[in-house]
């Protein structure tokens, strides 16, 4: 983080690399297709792959929106770090809490 002062200052200049209207529409098209694929899982049977497929599609959509619509791909990495901190923090903490809660009934059952 100590290098942020110098390193991040330069990233502002990268603003002109932002996508064009056409690219935005293409990304929205990709998002639509992904949503359609998510939707299709409601009707098609994928077996054990069902949940992994859905989560993967969700992650791709998430990445497209934050990367392009929220400009994280073009902006300073500090913003990405802030978002990742919140996201990873939430996943880890609530994940552990969830496991801790799940451990109790398992014990009672045995």
């Amino acid at each position: 983080m100590s290098d942020a002062t110098t390193a991040d200052a330069t990233t502002q200049a990268a603003h002109h690399d932002e996508p064009t209207v056409r690219q935005y529409v293409e990304i929205a098209g990709a998002l639509s297709v992904l949503t359609l694929m998510e939707f299709s899982t409601y009707f098609v049977e994928f077996g054990w792959l069902h949940i992994p497929i859905l989560l993967t599609l969700m992650a791709i959509k998430f990445g497209l929106i934050v990367g392009f619509f929220m400009h994280l791909k073009y902006d300073t990495r500090l913003y990405t770090r802030l978002m990742v901190t919140g996201l990873v923090g939430a996943l880890t903490l609530y994940g552990i809490a969830f496991l801790a809660i799940a451990e109790v009934p398992t014990l009672m059952g045995s």
Binding site: T5, A9, T11, T76, L78, L82, G86, G89, A90, Y94
Partner: peptide, 27 residues
């Protein structure tokens, strides 16, 4: 100091915390 706009930085800081907010509800 970082060559960033205060308001945009603040919005990102706030959004970071919002993940914790919705995460608890989803849990």
């Amino acid at each position: 100091s970082l060559g960033l706009d205060n308001r945009k930085l603040a919005m990102w800081v706030f959004l970071g915390s919002e993940f914790m907010f919705f995460g608890a509800f989803i849990t």
